[in-house]
Design a binder for these strands. Structure first.
Length: 199
DNA sequence: ACGGAGATCTTCT
DNA sequence: GAAGATCTCCGTT
């Protein structure tokens, strides 16, 4: 049995947590059946100073979970269509989180195939909106504690990825309103060559 | 293979 | 009223 990542793991800067999450396994419990995938791509959103973060303009009803304790989920609807899964981190008491951008399906492939009917396997969970569809993650998971199995969603220790297989680059999809200083931060990490990384 | 538009919720101007 | 941490479909090459 792999161990579940505990609060201490998330109790550091999002820029440390994000690369450390690569190789870990995101697990969804479907009435006893495990549906899971290895995390292959993440993005860090740091404290309130980060112009690309939802926390930048202060607290709102939506981003409120970012002020929760580390290890909690921040799930929100983007473009009115896609659910995004974040894990809250704790850089010096600031609201910060890591966006899980892509996973490689590992367990419960029948369920994932059903959730992503008609799509090629490589597209089952290769994107933040896709992985939430694959694992059926939505508003019900917002603010849950991901260090507890009772949440039905947690993250387990997985493979250790050699540092030479970890690539790093600018975050994706940030708007023009964000200054280049923040757009250029290389705060997206992924496993080099993994086919389930988003494009 | 590639580009544009639609979907449709929350927040900000 | 517009834009956003996106994805899919449908048009044209």
């Amino acid at each position: 049995m792999a161990s579940i990542l505990q609060h201490a793991f998330y109790q550091q800067c999002a820029t440390d947590v994000a690369p450390n999450l690569l190789g870990a396994v995101l697990v969804r419990d479907f009435e006893g059946q495990r549906v899971s995938g290895m995390i292959v791509e993440t993005e860090a959103y740091t404290g309130q100073a980060d112009a690309a973060s939802h926390a930048y303009r202060g607290r709102t009803k939506r981003n409120q979970p970012m002020w929760e304790a580390p290890g909690h989920a921040y799930v929100y609807l983007n473009y009115g269509v896609h659910w995004m899964l974040n894990v809250v981190c704790e850089p010096v008491g600031q609201p910060a989180a890591v966006l899980i951008r892509a996973i490689e399906p590992v367990e419960g492939l029948d369920i994932i195939r059903h959730n992503r009917v008609g799509r090629r396997r490589q597209q089952w969970a290769s994107g933040p909106g896709r992985l939430t569809l694959a694992l059926q993650i939505d508003q019900h998971h917002n603010q849950l504690d991901l260090t507890k199995k009772t949440s039905g969603l947690w993250i387990e220790q997985g493979h250790t990825i050699p540092s030479d297989q970890i690539k790093q680059g600018p975050r994706i999809g940030l708007g023009k309103r964000v200054s280049t200083e923040w757009i250029n931060k290389p705060w997206r990490w992924w496993i080099d060559g993994n086919p389930h990384v988003s494009r």
